[in-house]
Design a protein around this nucleic acid. Structure first.
Lengths: 327, 327
DNA sequence: CTGAAAGCGCTTACAG
DNA sequence: CTGAAAGCGCTTACAG
């Protein structure tokens, strides 16, 4: 360690570099060390530090679906809560893949101070052992024994059902995501249940699923539309805004009137949903808050505190726009 | 190291765990070790490994602007080229911040096998010393001595100018990004130069800049439009599609006809540009290829190979849609 | 083919 | 207040 060329032992340097000098290092030595550090441009090697300490100062966030602009909001929230003490590193899964235990275990080798896992695979917890501080995001159905921050998407699904019912729809279609994310199951089941209670029908042939991709959603819709039309479908509920954009696009190309012939709704309330034509009725999900709360929980965990009341659930709200309501 | 409870020395275990056993470990011992590894669920501690070896098997990508869906394509390309040998970790800068040398230096403590830096600050290289394998993405103007993969945005800017000129525009506005990214400078300068050569004017008051955000772009446009109109502006060139969406949104709200009263163009060719109404004329940038080529270069660097011909520049192309052309 | 040993760069009791 | 020393979990020459 070069820094000690300025007179003292590595122990003293370590104390100063880690801000643990007060009361344990003489003022004169501290100054000497600081000067040496500056002159040599020394940066604590976090590998060595992590090895000695047992943990790194890295928080790793595992997430699928980074292409979703919604995700950027979540990240912003995480960063805001984490501050500068911890370094946030993102581990992205391949497109359409959920974070797996296998994957995450490799990350554990980096000795993260904590783990944030977004939309994990349902079997995730059973497979991953000895995790250390970990908070799940957007992971409904993992029970109350594991720290998690969820979005109340069911509430949003109910709001959609109520809104469609109130605007006179009786037969609706459902365009699902096919990534297997649990939140999609919750969205769908909540909607189907509410729809049934409200007397709306969702014919089996009007329940399809595609990857979260505008083009693929457009294609799927183009193929399905004739049979939907025959079945009397007048509205389609999409699992994400991205799916809905596909429908908007295809509908324009095919001359299908939105919302006259077909009303369309989404989930996420992405920025583009205000811009699209017509504007997209969508369930607004508080992404920034989701990230912030999850990071706060993780910080508590890292500090060794007990968490109360799990999981935390964040409310959603329906933004009604032109895709379901004639201006 | 618990794994050696199955009979051999740590050296032997290390050899097996790293796949260096062939010819150096007896078959019987190898089997023993593999069994022990499986039974104990042993994972090589990458911290210890990295410390001993000098480098980790982590490739760190530093990037701003993760909210840009374009970025997801870049990531996909990087992952595809990197394969499974290296773990990709993303370090995101705060919104509107470029990757700084300061920031990156901290990351170096993790001993990455290599660094991928997207849209760095212009002073980046001077400030960052002793980098190890590193490839820049989308970093025009860093000279030919540093490995980089760039997008030929200037070419796209020329295409826009030519297209607008050909469709009869003589006075145009420019809505820039204000993050200081070099690529924005290149886009703007290339366009302004080409516009001048083609006899189009871009009045000073019609050159404004905002953050990459639909809402902010919309506001800026709303404020600027009266004076633009007075100056005879009939087209606006936006530094990103996101800016353009803001204009589309505000124009619809204000009843400004696109492209009749105002033609609009963007850069990036995001998926939503096909969906928007009207479709957005935009410069298509090959994001997936950008990521792939950059990762390939990095892999060569890590393998100790010499790179030829730097920087690599990827071609762009103009996608003409309804925002500049009446159907 | 195999194991004992040194060493990677740090941190943290522990003596002094 | 300070330094010598042990130890974090690995890898890699080096003897045998």
């Amino acid at each position: 360690m070069v820094a000690e060329r300025a007179g003292v032992s590595t122990a003293t340097v370590s104390l100063v570099a880690n801000g643990k000098a007060s009361g344990r290092v003489s003022a004169s030595n501290e100054i000497l060390v600081r000067e040496a550090i500056r002159e040599l441009g020394y940066v604590v090697d976090s590998i060595g530090s992590s090895l000695a300490r047992g943990v790194s100062n890295t928080v790793i966030m595992v997430a699928p679906d980074i292409s979703n602009p919604f995700f950027a909001m979540v990240i912003a929230g995480v960063r805001a809560a984490l501050g500068s003490e911890y370094q946030l590193l993102l581990s992205v899964t391949d497109a359409g893949q959920l974070p797996s235990a296998e994957n995450t275990r490799r990350l554990l080798g980096l000795r993260p101070a904590g783990l944030l896992v977004d939309a994990p695979d349902p079997t995730f917890l059973q497979e991953l052992s000895a995790p250390g501080p970990m908070v799940l995001l957007d992971a409904p159905g993992f029970g109350s024994d594991v720290p998690a921050v969820n979005l109340d998407v069911a509430q949003g699904a109910l709001a959609i059902a109520a809104h469609l019912s109130a605007t006179g729809h009786t037969t609706v279609a459902y365009l699902d995501g096919d990534t297997g994310t649990t939140t999609f199951d919750v969205r769908r089941e909540a909607f189907l249940t509410a729809a049934e209670e409200l007397g709306m029908s969702v014919p089996p042939e009007a329940q399809i699923a595609t990857t979260i991709n505008v083009g693929l959603a457009a294609n799927a819709f183009a193929t399905a539309w004739p049979s939907w039309k025959k079945a009397g479908v007048t509205a389609v509920v999409c699992a994400t805004d991205t799916h809905a954009y596909g429908i908007l696009q295809e509908a324009r190309a095919a001359g299908i009137l939105i919302p006259g012939e077909l009303a369309v709704t989404g989930f996420d309330d992405l920025p583009y949903s205000t811009t699209s034509s017509p504007g997209l009725t969508s369930v607004h999900l508080p992404g920034e808050l989701l990230g912030r709360r999850a990071a706060e929980q993780l910080l508590s965990l890292i500090a060794g505190e007990e968490l109360e009341q799990q999981p935390i659930t964040l409310e959603s709200s329906l933004m009604v726009r032109g895709s379901t309501l004639e201006p």
